[in-house]
Every structure is written in structure tokens, then in C-alpha cells.
């Protein structure tokens, strides 16, 4: 038993079902800090992915690659590109495999974080989705069951959101607002939490 393309299909559909409400909230948060298009990116991206969910191949790597293509078809927010980069990083590691042991999830998240840091230029501690994912990566280490992986991930994403709330954004457009971002939630970090909660 492990992570398969079926899980990916399920996750895409589950998130897409809630994405309109999620999108409104994220647009509102992003309008204060960024260019206000995070919600739009999420809505379009998940609608695109849902449209191809049934056709995703069983090869998990190839399925991630097709999902990355669909996600990145919405230009605009860097969030779409970063999701594409993470999916691609995972695709490269899992090409040719149908079932990924849950115990490998932590390492795969680590690969995605590395790829996003290399391409996007952010570091851990900048108050971005990387900090959420790093918390999730740590929480999932040595977990090997889907239910514990999911509950630990939701908890980690929520903890990360709260622990960074009182720190300033240090990269991207939000950085310009500096200390004014103290007390505000990073829209990308909220997106991660909301996506996991939808599962």
C-alpha cells in the first residue's frame, strides 16, 4: 500500500470542490500583500487539473507531470509556477512507479522544497509556502500510513501558519510592506492549509 495516482485524482477533485470559496478568501488576503491573483490561480489551476484527473496515467511520476502541465496553464501568479515546479520535482523522482510507499513522502516533499528554493529564490524563514512544506516534511518523517500522514500534515500546516503570523514577509511583493506584514497570514501558507483541510 502506498501513494498512487488514485490519491492524486482524489486530492485534485476534493480540493476543486472547495476551490471557489478558497479562491475568494485567498484573493482577499493576496490583495493586501501581493497582486491579488492567488485565488484566481488556485481556481483556474484546480479546474484545469480536475478536467484531466480521470485521464491521469497510473505511473505516478507521469501523473504528476500531467498535473504540473495543467496547473501551469494559468499564467499570472508565481504560485502556479511554484506548484508546477514541486509537481515536476516529484515527477522526476517517481517516474515509472505506480505505488510510492508513504514513508517516502517526507523525502519527496524535501525534493520539492529544494526545487522551489533553487528556482524561486526564497529561503526557509521567509514566510512562504516553503515554511509550511518544511513543517509538513518534518511532521511526516517516519510516518507510513495515509491517515496519520494527513492528520500530521494538517496540524503542521496550521502550526506553521500561526508561528509565522507574527513574523514579517521577507520575499516577493509582500516584502515591500516589511513589518506591516507582522500579524498578517501569508496567503500562500493559508492556501496550503486550506488545501490539506479539503482532503
Amino acid at each position: 500500500m502506498g501513494l498512487t495516482s488514485n490519491h492524486l485524482r482524489h486530492a485534485i477533485r476534493a480540493i476543486q470542490k472547495d476551490v471557489d470559496a478558497m479562491g475568494d478568501l485567498l484573493n482577499e488576503l493576496d490583495a493586501k500583500l501581493g497582486d491579488g491573483d492567488l485565488g484566481v490561480t488556485m481556481v483556474n489551476g484546480f479546474n484545469n487539473m480536475a478536467a484531466i484527473a480521470d485521464d491521469l496515467p497510473d505511473d505516478f511520476g507521469r501523473a504528476c507531470m500531467e498535473a504540473a502541465k495543467a496547473m501551469t496553464k494559468v499564467s499570472g501568479s508565481s504560485f502556479g509556477t511554484l506548484m508546477g515546479i514541486s509537481l515536476m520535482a516529484v515527477a522526476k523522482q517517481t517516474k515509472g512507479e505506480d505505488t510510492i510507499p508513504w514513508s517516502r513522502l517526507s523525502d519527496l516533499i524535501g525534493t520539492a522544497i529544494d526545487a522551489m528554493m533553487e528556482r524561486g529564490g526564497a529561503s526557509l524563514g521567509d514566510k512562504t509556502i516553503l515554511d509550511s512544506l518544511e513543517a509538513i516534511r518534518r511532521a511526516c518523517t517516519e510516518l507510513d500510513r495515509p491517515d496519520t500522514v494527513l492528520s500530521a500534515s494538517v496540524e503542521a500546516a496550521t502550526d506553521a501558519l500561526y508561528s509565522f503570523r507574527d513574523k514579517p514577509n521577507r520575499i516577493g511583493r509582500a516584502r515591500i510592506f516589511g513589518d506591516k506584514t507582522i500579524g498578517m497570514d501569508d496567503p500562500g501558507m493559508v492556501a496550503i492549509q486550506k488545501m490539506l483541510q479539503a482532503l
Binding site: R62, T81, G84, K92, K95, R119
Partner: peptide, 17 residues
């Protein structure tokens, strides 16, 4: 440019697959 480079890097990786 950031966007061009990042997107082309992804496209090259996909092509590699």
C-alpha cells in the same frame, strides 16, 4: 528574466521526461 528562465527550466525538465 525570472519568469522566462523558471518556465524554460521547467519545460526542459518536462522535455527530458
Amino acid at each position: 528574466y525570472g519568469g522566462d528562465k523558471m518556465n524554460f527550466a521547467m519545460a526542459c525538465e518536462m522535455a527530458e521526461m
